[in-house]
């Protein structure tokens, strides 16, 4: 059902992702400061491009810069298996696992950026993100597994095809909700932005400036975009829909999910990790397990 694009599809993918990410960032600034701030992300990008790099004493530059680049690369690579309508860059047989792996790169990347600056605030942010990862990752994996279970395959094309009659969101609402929440968690957007929150002077972001900061923040937005885009084939029927062509449905659904996530992240306060941990392990993991059990019973029936 899905057709793999020629090689230039891989070149086009970062561009499409970046357009989504810039639109989302614009929407975010509009929500934050009003309609005049539409072009704020572009202005901030230009500013960061000409800003001089801040240096810190005895920084581990290799790990510091490497972490930021890893986050950016992971945000793009995660989208390799996400279809746009019926086009996909790579129809990998274990697409869901690939997507999950690229997200987990964020664990290493954020910690490295926090560590590399040799700054106490950055390090606090890095450790906070690892704690956060331990909280959101298991419910997130169970949500992914539930969608794969419903289709009986780890291939994204099969998951989309299995939703021909009924979108997975209808009979996997818990998995869908947990998935959206963990996307905010993995891209450390509020309410899960403890790793970069103001109480630690910006945490991981504290010492980042210039191009380094641009790469890291862009990676963060691309990760959020990839996560939002993956929700469409996993739970919202991919490019399926009446009248309009498939690619347009994919774009519309992705924009809706991304816009919703940005709006939600502007609505609440930062959640402290010791609070989120208890919620994740005592409420979310059992909830996703029950959801997976219900889905497996339905599938076997």
């Amino acid at each position: 059902m899905l057709e793999v694009t020629p090689w230039w599809g891989a070149l086009l993918l970062p561009v499409v992702l970046a357009l989504f990410a810039i639109a989302a960032a614009s929407f975010d600034s509009v929500l934050a400061t009003g309609r005049g701030a539409v072009a704020e992300p572009l202005r901030a990008t230009a500013g960061l491009l000409v800003q001089q790099r801040r240096r810190t004493l005895a920084a581990d530059s290799l790990l510091w810069r490497g972490g930021a680049v890893a986050l950016l690369v992971a945000g793009i690579m995660a989208a390799l298996v996400i279809p746009l309508g019926s086009w996909v860059v790579s129809d990998f047989s274990v697409g869901v696992v690939w997507f999950n792996t690229m997200e987990v790169v964020a664990w290493a990347a954020v910690w490295l950026v926090g560590w590399g600056a040799n700054s106490a605030f950055g390090l606090i942010g890095g450790y906070r993100f690892i704690a956060q990862g331990l909280a959101y990752e298991l419910p997130h994996m169970f949500a992914l597994i539930t969608a794969a279970l419903g289709a009986g395959s780890l291939r994204v094309a099969d998951i989309v095809a299995a939703q021909h009659d009924l979108w997975f969101v209808v009979w996997m609402p818990v998995a869908f909700a947990v998935y959206l929440m963990s996307v905010l968690g993995m891209a450390f957007f509020r309410p899960f932005d403890h790793a970069v929150s103001g109480d630690a002077a910006g945490g991981v972001l504290a010492e980042l400036s210039g191009v380094d900061r641009l790469v890291f923040v862009a990676g963060r937005w691309l990760l959020l975009t990839s996560g939002a885009a993956m929700a469409v084939p996993l739970f919202l029927g991919g490019g399926q829909g009446p009248l309009l062509p498939g690619w347009l449905w994919s774009v519309l659904k992705t924009a809706a999910v991304l816009g919703f996530l940005v709006w939600v992240s502007r609505r609440g306060p930062t959640v402290r990790m010791e609070r989120f941990h208890e919620i994740a392990w005592i409420v979310l993991i059992p909830a996703t397990l029950v959801q997976a059990l219900v889905v497996s019973i339905v599938v076997i029936w």
Binding site: F92, S93, V94, V97, T101, V104, W107
Partner: peptide, 14 residues
């Protein structure tokens, strides 16, 4: 061995 390879990367990062 696609599944095993990707899984090794996933598990090793964590």
């Amino acid at each position: 061995l696609a599944y095993l390879g990707v899984l090794v990367i996933l598990m090793m990062i964590m």
